[in-house]
Write a protein that binds this DNA or RNA. Structure first.
Lengths: 148, 148
DNA sequence: GTATAATTGAAAATGATTTTCAATTTCATA
DNA sequence: TATGAAATTGAAAATCATTTTCAATTATAC
């Protein structure tokens, strides 16, 4: 966590931005949660300990955290911006359960290699990609989405 | 196109919904465009010929088109709901250019097979998946996103 | 044709995200 | 450690896509 805070400070300094109490609180809250957290969820978490920090500040700081390379966007199809940890977390794909909403992180080097090859074949230079598989997890086998 | 219209009518009838002039106009407009169209874009297209059709009707009809299995959602990361043709269009993945915004449809059966295997290994029953590769297309090589 | 249930368009509501702005805070420099 | 320019803050308002409301209209089974 110290390393992440260092990277965040560096990112701010590099852009002539200031290291404020609020920004550090938001970063700490983000680092503490391992969830794929939305801005609203993080705001509620922070509000408990620091009710003086406003929604806009949380929102703005999340952008900065992304820009510092500490978080990446994930999209679970619910139209809400969610962020997951990036630093120290390798790229991975997601299995997302349509019944219970839980997600699982997976990684397959063979798929990654084929994706790279597929892009190259089209003379396309890949920068990043995302792959999400929606379905039913072990516990929810046989359930349908409406049974949630 | 006749087949699609037939399927749409059937879908409506099955749910005790009515086949209206407006719904047919929206479907036709959707079928005519091969783009990954947003609700707003489609509304503007329709407005030219049928200014009496309202936004809400376009929006509602797009839902029905989806439910009839004629369109599926795509997400290009711009927070806007977009639909692409589903009927007669096989599943595919997308290469999305960060510079010019163009996209390319690709398909690799080996990747599909590995995805299936990956899910199974986690006792996960896949229903659908999406894979988007963001990067730079042949024309935009070397450009950065800010050069658009 | 008539009854009735669904549909329509306009406008308003919603909900996440983003901006505005006056007051406050940071921090490089003195 | 003080100072002042520049950045930041929180609250509220604005934005923007999406979704709902509702009274008037329309489709369709009989």
């Amino acid at each position: 966590m110290q390393k992440e805070i260092e990277l965040f400070r560096d990112g701010l300094k590099k852009n002539n931005l200031k290291v404020t109490r609020q920004r550090l609180r938001v970063l700490e809250a983000f680092l503490k949660t391992e969830k794929h957290v939305s801005c609203d969820e993080l705001y509620r978490l922070i509000r408990g300990e620091h009710p003086e920090i406003g929604y806009a500040t949380v929102y703005r700081t999340l952008k900065l955290i992304q820009e510092a390379g500490l978080a990446r966007e994930v999209d679970f199809g619910d139209k809400v911006l969610r962020l997951e940890h990036e630093y120290g977390h390798k790229h991975h794909d997601h299995l997302i359960c349509l019944a219970c909403g839980k997600f699982f992180e997976v990684f397959d080097p063979d798929i990654e290699a084929l994706q790279e090859k597929l892009a190259k074949k089209q003379n396309f230079t890949p920068v990043r990609h995302k792959m999400d598989i929606f379905g039913y997890c072990q516990k929810c086998q046989g359930k349908s989405a409406s049974c949630v």
